[in-house]
Design a protein around this nucleic acid. Structure first.
Length: 385
RNA sequence: GCGGAUAUAGUUUAGUGGCAGAACGCGAGGUUGUGGUCCUUGUAGCGGGGGUUCGAUUCCCUCUUUCCGCU
């Protein structure tokens, strides 16, 4: 069994568990920084290890464009390539159907992407995608899914669901076939991804179909999208997301790990943990760090604001991260304003350290069966302006 | 000293005899399976004086500014 639950919260569905991968075990819940091109932007793998980050997610499709899977395979696997001893996830590239920069078209057979480097057209299939992810040697691979684009009709979303399910089946078969001779202990895990937009019935239908196959984990895709946020009331979007998670959790067996893809807002993440979600990834902490939005135990701090020009305090006096131990708000603000790489590094380091600590504290709270108390405390911090 | 050109937002600049636009900067929000490159929004300007005109940032004169050339 790849996943075991070790602790359960009392009032919520939050739980702590252990996921076994070929690179070792990792305790859930956990948050993965995004490392699209085999690095978390501005943060090297030694820094990740220093702040006790146990997993990252790279992008198999984008890595296949450059440097190419052969380059990574040559040194063994992605972990060795980037010298990261933690758990490596790879995303399929399905999400890049959202990228005008990369996406051309798709049909039931697969997706056509353009290679922005060479200009050539690339035809991606579930089978090819599994081959790439296995060659890259991630610990956990994600199925190639198809994203319903924003504004599509329910009929279109149903079509995306059917395609996602069909592709998941093809991924699973190919993945099993390619790993037939690999010993259990050294096998790559494969997670499915469900779609269905905001429609509970479509989500239910999608997950029910995916459950026919023995995936190692079941991810929820298509949430935390900017398009949805721009759509209107944030609270409505939050309720929709929670409803999607509830539907998912109601159907998927408890002993299957649940991965909410793309979610990285601290509060939304805690809400998801309360519903029984086990793992997350998001560009949010790193991207917003580069743009001057910092997470602190006093709430959000916009370090580019004028008021921090002369501020000699650290980002967060309660934070023990490298950036907070050594540098002032004034200095980091200056570096970010000047677009200096070190500024982005320090800000990213801080935000990732915060996210990791937030998750660690969440785990402790679950173990003590007091998760909702903890969640309320964090909500108070981030709700005040 | 003479001649020519020039003057528009903090900066670089469009433009017009009747509402002066932009970019960058600056201020404030946003940011969610990453294109280090993003989005939204706010702020702010016709060098001074005189003339022509219903009306001048625009045309004329003058002063000043800056630049170029000549002696």
């Amino acid at each position: 069994m790849a996943f075991n639950i070790t602790h359960k919260d009392k009032k919520t569905n939050a739980r702590v568990g252990i996921l076994q991968t070929k690179s070792g075990a990792i305790e859930t819940p956990f948050f993965m920084p995004v490392a699209t091109k085999a690095t978390t932007k501005f943060i090297n793998s030694q820094q990740l290890e220093e702040m006790k980050i146990k997993a990252v997610i790279s992008n198999a499709f984008i890595l296949s464009l450059r440097p190419g899977k052969e380059v990574i395979k040559k040194v063994g696997d992605l972990g060795k390539f980037m010298n990261f001893s933690g758990v490596n996830f790879t995303d399929s590239g399905g999400f890049q159907m959202y990228s005008e920069y990369l996406y051309l078209k798709s049909d039931d057979s697969g997706v056509w992407f353009k290679n922005p480097i060479s200009g050539e057209t690339i035809f991606m299939t579930p089978e090819k995608n599994m081959d790439i992810q296995l060659d890259i040697g991630a610990d956990v691979a994600m199925c190639l899914d198809t994203m319903p684009l924003y504004g599509q009709s329910k009929k279109d979303i149903l079509q995306a669901v059917e395609r996602t399910v069909a592709w998941a089946e093809r991924c699973k078969k190919e993945h099993d076939r390619l790993q037939k001779k690999v010993p259990q202990k050294r096998r790559q895990l494969l997670f499915s991804i469900s779609q269905g937009g905001i429609y509970s019935d479509l989500r239910k239908h999608c997950v029910e179909q995916l459950l026919k196959y023995d995936f190692d984990g079941f991810a929820i895709g298509g949430v935390a999208l900017p398009e949805q946020l721009y759509g209107g009331n944030i609270e409505d979007v939050k309720k929709q997301e929670q409803e999607i998670i509830r539907v998912h959790k109601k159907i998927v067996p408890e002993n299957k790990i649940c991965y909410l893809m793309g979610e990285g807002d601290p509060l939304w993440m805690l809400d998801a943990i309360a519903l029984g979600v086990d793992c997350f990834d998001s560009r949010f902490p790193t991207q917003s760090a580069r743009r001057g939005s910092l997470l602190t135990w006093q709430g959000k701090l916009k370090i580019l604001n004028k008021q921090y020009t002369f501020d000699q305090k650290p980002i967060d006096k309660n934070c023990k991260c490298f950036a907070c131990k050594n540098y002032t708000r004034s200095y980091i603000r200056h570096l970010l304003k000047e677009d200096e790489a070190v500024g982005k590094e320090l800000a990213s380091y801080h935000n990732l350290f915060f996210m990791n600590e937030l998750i660690e504290k969440a785990k402790e709270a679950i173990k003590k069966k007091k998760f909702s108390v903890f969640k309320n405390k964090i909500e108070k911090i981030f709700s005040k302006k």
